[in-house]
Structure formats: structure tokens, C-alpha cells
Simulated assay, not measured.
Amino acid sequence: MVTLPLVLVLGLLALGLVKWGKQKVSGVLVGIVFGLALATTAVGPPILHAVTAASKTVVSAISSAVP
């Protein structure tokens, strides 16, 4: 399951890339369509699981480093 904060972060990143001229709107739309297509295949869930595990590891590392 993709959480709302992850979607917001990725949306803000895409908006920033368009605003700063690093990416065109068409490229962002292609990325969205590709992501939706990938999510409907058998490859999508393992990728999502890996991203979720990595993000939990990063959050855990940051949380343990802060007193």
C-alpha cells in the first residue's frame, strides 16, 4: 500500500522538477502512467515492498540518531 505522505512527497518532487525546468510536464505524465502500469503487474508489489522497507530503515536510523 502506498501511503499518502509518500504520494505527497513524490508529487511535490515532480512539481519541483517541472517548476525548476528540470523536467517537462509531459515527462511527469509519462512517469505517472508508467507507475500506474507497473503497479498493475506482478513486478509492482515487490518493488513497493522494497521501497517501504528502505523507507522504514531510513526513518528508524534517523529516529535512533536523534536523542
Rank of each mutant, 00 (worst) to 15 (best):
P67L: 07
L4I: 15
L29P: 00
V28Y: 04
T52P: 00
L13P: 00
A50E: 09
L36R: 00
L38Y: 08
I47Q: 06
A42K: 11
V30N: 08
S64V: 11
L29E: 11
P46E: 12
I47R: 07
L48E: 04
L15R: 13
L38E: 07
V51K: 03
G11K: 06
T52E: 14
T41K: 05
Q23A: 15
P45A: 05
L38Q: 09
K56A: 14
I47G: 03
A37F: 13
S63D: 11
V9Y: 03
V51D: 07
V66Q: 02
G21S: 11
G16A: 11
I47M: 14
A14F: 05
I62V: 13
L12P: 00
K19S: 11
G27W: 08
K22F: 15
G44V: 09
A65V: 01
V58W: 06
L10T: 04
H49Q: 12
L17W: 12
V18I: 14
V66A: 03
T3E: 12
M1E: 03
M1I: 04
V58D: 00
W20I: 07
S60L: 07
S63K: 14
G31I: 03
L8A: 12
L4M: 11
A61F: 13
S64G: 00
W20D: 15
V7A: 15
K56Y: 09
W20M: 04
L15Q: 10
I62Q: 05
L29H: 09
K24T: 15
L38K: 05
V33Y: 10
T3I: 08
P46H: 11
G35T: 02
L15P: 00
W20S: 13
V25E: 06
L13W: 12
A14E: 01
V18N: 01
T3K: 06
T40W: 07
L36C: 03
A39Q: 08
L12A: 08
G35I: 06
S64R: 14
G35P: 01
I32D: 00
L8D: 09
T40G: 01
S64F: 10
V58L: 10
A61N: 08
T52Y: 11
S26M: 01
P46V: 13
V30E: 12
L8M: 06
S55N: 11
A54C: 02
A50P: 00
S26E: 13
A39E: 10
L15H: 07
A54T: 13
L13C: 05
